[in-house]
C-alpha cells in the first residue's frame, strides 16, 4: 500500500512540477474561448451546444495529457525499476492512473464551470454535467492508460496514442454528451440511466484496463 501511494504521489508531483497540469488546463480554456468566435455570438445557440462542446474539449485535453502517462518513465528507465518491484504491474498501472486522475482530470473538472460561463451555460445544468464527467472519469483515464502503454515502444508515439484511444472514448462521449443535453431539456435534472451506463463503463475499465495496460508495459520492457 505504501508503494502504491508513493507512486501515485510521485506521478502527481511530477505532473505539477513539469507544468503539465497548467498546460492542459490552459488548453481547455483556449479551446473554449475560441468556440464563440467560431460559432458566432448567438447566446441561445451557445448555451444549447455548451454541454457537448465542454465534453469534446475535456476529451481533447485529456488525450493531450496521455503522452505523459508512461512515456517519461519509459525513456528515463524508471519503468525498469518499477518492473523489478514486488508490486504487480497491474497495481502500478492503477497507481499511475490514480495519480493522473488527481493531477490532471480533477483540475480539468474544476475548470469546467468557469469555462462553461464563456459558453453561456445555464448554471442549473452544471451539477448534472459535472456528475456525468466524474462518472466517466475512471473509464477515460484507464482507457487512456491502455493506449499510452501500447504506444510506448514506438518512437513519437503521441499520435499513435491518440489514434488508439479515440475510438475507445467515443462510447463515453456519446453517453456523456447526450445525458448532459438531456439534463438541459429536463431543466437540470440528472439523467440517471445514462449516468448508470457511464459508471458501468468505468467499473468495467477499472477491472480490465489495468490487465491490458500492464501486459503492454511488460512488452515495452523487452
Amino acid at each position: 500500500m505504501g508503494i502504491f501511494l508513493s507512486l501515485c504521489h510521485q506521478h502527481m508531483l511530477l505532473a505539477w512540477r513539469s507544468g503539465h497540469t497548467t498546460l492542459i488546463v490552459t488548453f481547455l480554456f483556449i479551446a473554449v474561448t475560441l468556440m464563440p468566435f467560431g460559432l458566432g455570438p448567438e447566446l441561445a445557440l451557445l448555451s444549447r451546444l455548451a454541454p457537448g462542446l465542454l465534453w469534446v474539449v475535456l476529451l481533447m485535453s485529456l488525450l493531450l495529457s496521455l503522452d505523459r502517462m508512461f512515456q517519461a518513465d519509459y525513456e528515463d528507465g524508471t519503468l525498469e525499476q518499477l518492473g523489478l518491484l514486488p508490486l504487480p504491474m497491474e497495481l502500478i498501472v492503477l497507481a499511475k492512473s490514480l495519480g493522473h486522475f488527481i493531477a490532471l482530470f480533477v483540475p480539468l473538472l474544476i475548470s469546467v464551470p468557469v469555462a462553461g460561463l464563456l459558453l453561456n451555460i445555464e448554471a442549473a445544468v452544471l451539477p448534472a454535467l459535472m456528475l456525468t464527467m466524474l462518472a466517466g472519469a475512471p473509464a477515460l483515464t484507464l482507457l487512456g492508460a491502455i493506449g499510452a502503454a501500447l504506444a510506448l515502444s514506438v518512437r513519437r508515439s503521441a499520435m499513435l496514442t491518440v489514434l488508439l484511444v479515440m475510438p475507445l472514448y467515443i462510447p463515453v462521449l456519446v453517453f456523456g454528451a447526450t445525458s448532459s443535453t438531456r439534463a438541459i431539456a429536463m431543466s437540470g435534472q440528472i439523467d440517471w440511466p445514462a449516468l448508470g451506463i457511464l459508471a458501468l463503463m468505468s467499473c468495467a475499465a477499472l477491472f480490465m484496463a489495468p490487465l491490458a495496460a500492464a501486459a503492454a508495459l511488460r512488452v515495452a520492457l523487452r
Binding site: L13, R17, D76, L84
Partner: peptide, 16 residues
C-alpha cells in the same frame, strides 16, 4: 530472491 538492475538509463527524475 530479488535483484537490482542498474542500466544505461538512470531512472531518475530531473524535476525532483
Amino acid at each position: 530472491t530479488q535483484c537490482h538492475y542498474l542500466g544505461h538509463t538512470d531512472g531518475l527524475k530531473a524535476n525532483l
